[in-house]
Write a protein that binds this DNA or RNA. Sequence first.
DNA 1: AGCCTTACTTACTTTTTAGTAACAATCGTG
DNA 2: CACGATTGTTACTAAAAAGTAAGTAAGGCT
Lengths: 129, 129
Amino acid sequence: MKENNPDKFILTSECPIRQVLDRFGDKWSMLVVELLSHRGRLRFSEIGQNIEDISQKMLTVTLRSLESDGLITREIFPEIPPRVEYELTSLGKSLVPHIMSLTSWGIEHMATILENRKAYELKQKKTTY
Amino acid sequence: MKENNPDKFILTSECPIRQVLDRFGDKWSMLVVELLSHRGRLRFSEIGQNIEDISQKMLTVTLRSLESDGLITREIFPEIPPRVEYELTSLGKSLVPHIMSLTSWGIEHMATILENRKAYELKQKKTTY
DNA sequence: AGCCTTACTTACTTTTTAGTAACAATCGTG
DNA sequence: CACGATTGTTACTAAAAAGTAAGTAAGGCT
């Protein structure tokens, strides 16, 4: 769906919002970043225990992608049983305020949004039947 | 994956980041909001032309959910062929700075992230073989 | 010898998300 | 009387994301 662009403000697939959303708009990445920001250095199991409903697999996947992007470090302690600790890098820390920004908006407006949605549903029912 | 919570900072399914991401972390919602913020009142086809690769279906779905949440208004002009115009509400406008915040981070750091990812891939190859 | 622990990995299945393409509605125009 | 214009809807399909559950490693403990 595209044609001419009269006013030249096209949101292409390379634009920054899309890149950020593609990488961190998933279910868990921002949560892990925020948790590490709040709690500092944590090991695998501690992260898992503080994020509701995350599976081991998704925690692994999420941590790996954050590590690969340079947002967190991963330190392995060669003990038995194994211990691995994760911590935000400075790059990771630099993301935090921007997540907080979104979070604060959510805190402020989420109730209104849920009300709006409810009202919209009712309106739909009325006009449909 | 959860047990005890020693330091009581659990990210539950009702926490604001998760709610915001669940609703606006999709592929298109934030793009539509940013576009309307930049360009003001637009009709359906104009939005479609300014967001690369969005399908008619996803544009409809996205606009409906934004409308239902009260972030945009939808005005129908009873003409032939039909004309429908969309515009941000004040609630929608209030989201914009927070999206911009994320966007600006992306602009600043996305190149670094891509380099990090590349370096990480190389490192993996080396240690694997 | 068998079980415990932690941090994974793997194979498989389910769920969610998104894409494609055809159709609807309606009036003016050629 | 078929066609074009615009904003959709619908059915179907494909792809991506995520969940589940079992397995692995390695040493300590009983």
